[in-house]
Amino acid sequence: MAILSGPGLLYTLRLHWKKSTAGAIVFVAGGYYGIDRFRAHLIRRSYCQRAKVYSEELLSHPTDNNRRMMVFLNPAVDRGNPRKLFQKNVAPILHMAGIDVTVVESEYEGHLRTLMGYMDKGLSGIVIAGGDGSIQEAVTGLLRRTDESSIASVPIGIVPMGKSNSLAGKLFRSEASDVRRLCDAAFSIVAGQTQPLDVMSLKSENKSQPAVFSVGLLQWGLFRDTDRTLDKFWWTGRFRGFSAYLWRTIKGPWPHQRHISVTVPETQAQQSADQPGAASTVAADLRQGVDTAALQVCTPLASDDKLDQITMKIWPANVNKNSFIGYGWRKHVLRQPTEDLPTAFELTGTEFQLNLPEDEVSWFSIDGEMYEAQSVKITLLPKKLKIFVPER
Rank of each mutant, 00 (worst) to 15 (best):
N206V: 13
T379V: 12
N89K: 03
A22G: 05
G34F: 09
G34P: 05
S201C: 11
T263R: 13
P337E: 01
K384V: 06
R258M: 12
W234L: 10
R83S: 00
S365E: 01
S149I: 13
K386L: 11
H111R: 07
E266P: 10
F324N: 03
A373Q: 07
V26N: 02
L142H: 06
K232Y: 09
L42V: 13
E360W: 15
L295R: 05
R39C: 06
L73M: 05
K121R: 15
K163V: 00
S362V: 07
L202Q: 06
W363M: 09
G157P: 08
M370D: 08
I128T: 02
Q374L: 10
L85C: 04
D147H: 06
N322V: 15
P342R: 08
G349D: 01
A273E: 05
P196R: 10
D340M: 13
A273N: 07
I260H: 03
L381H: 11
F324P: 08
C183D: 00
W220E: 00
M161S: 02
V139Q: 02
T102V: 15
I325W: 07
T226F: 08
A191S: 11
W315Q: 02
D132N: 02
I35G: 03
Y33S: 08
T292W: 08
G131W: 03
T350G: 03
V154K: 04
V103I: 14
R224M: 09
R335P: 04
T21A: 14
S243E: 02
I158D: 00
V127E: 01
E107V: 14
V179F: 01
S177R: 08
S134E: 00
